[in-house]
Design a protein around this nucleic acid. Structure first.
Length: 260
DNA sequence: CCTTAGTCCTGCATGC
DNA sequence: TGCATGCAGGACTAAG
């Protein structure tokens, strides 16, 4: 999302919104007529990211886009276009931002200025001190991996990056969050921002669907140590990596480096 | 409040 | 080859 926002910001700044056109009804939350009545004609003055939400601030209201797993944004697509277009955001300047999403999970939402923007999200996990504070605030017996994925605890960590951070911190994903030792907390606090910032430098992780608004893939998949490597040897110790389910999520780890 | 399970969806991998 | 089946997954909601 960070990579997408960085690409999107210069493309969208100062454009004036004409209309949001949902093609799959559930993609746009709320009544399209009302949404457009509020948002139409307004100028974009900021584009940024909060957690996994892309935020587009107009003069007053805010548009958020959540791409979930398979969503993509395409700016000014060629006329021949592509399948799975779920919504189009049209601008007065004859430009267009298209949401493509095979699985139909992505959502666009308009927020009025006076209402609280976004769900209650935890802090951004890009600095060790922030992550450390969040981990120390956890009194939960849930698995540490489940806590990392909880957007109320920290906002923006997805399944891939949770597995990668836990591997780098040498922590078993099922350890109850409140039972983490001081050493484990320190290692995880360092590992989470390390993984996320490295992925941002590599412009994201492209496994199947992910592309930036210019349709360029990321390259962080080359740096993955455990995610999607079930049965392959651990880069540290050679032990075959294991896949389990934690909090209904596929979870990849090294049974030797990440002891229970 | 805390936690878990179910829901939404389709493309792709797998197996017969 | 063709078909059926099962699985993945982020956030929300309902239920325990």
């Amino acid at each position: 999302m960070e990579t997408i926002v960085r690409r999107l910001r210069p493309l969208l700044s100062n454009l004036r919104l004409r209309r949001i056109e949902p093609l799959w009804p559930r993609t746009l939350i709320g009544d399209p007529e009302q949404v457009n009545a509020v948002a139409s004609g307004r100028r974009i003055h900021d584009v940024f990211r909060r957690g996994k939400y892309i935020c587009i601030d107009l003069d007053g209201p805010r548009i958020t886009v959540h791409l979930r797993m398979s969503g993509r944004l395409v700016f000014d697509p060629r006329p021949e276009s592509q399948p799975h277009i779920r919504a189009r955001i049209h601008f007065m300047e004859s430009r267009c931002l298209v949401l493509v999403d095979p699985r139909k999970f992505a959502r666009i939402r308009m927020w009025r200025a006076q209402e609280a923007f976004l769900p209650r999200l935890g802090p951004e996990p890009l600095r060790p001190e922030t992550v450390r504070r969040a981990l120390d605030g956890l009194a939960t017996c849930r698995a540490v991996k489940t806590a990392l994925l909880d957007q109320h605890v920290l906002a923006g960590i997805g399944n891939i990056y949770a597995d990668e951070a836990l591997f780098r911190a040498r922590i078993h994903p099922r350890i109850p969050a409140r039972e983490l030792t001081i050493g484990q907390r320190s290692r995880l606090s360092a590992a989470v921002p390390q993984v996320l910032n490295a992925a941002i430098r590599r412009k994201g992780t492209t496994l199947n669907d992910y592309r930036d608004p210019d349709q360029r893939p990321g390259t962080f998949q080359q740096e993955l140590k455990v995610y999607g490597r079930t049965g392959q040897p651990c880069f540290t110790c050679g032990t075959p990596l294991v896949r389990i389910v934690v909090g209904q999520r596929g979870t990849h780890f090294c049974p030797k480096c990440q002891k229970a």
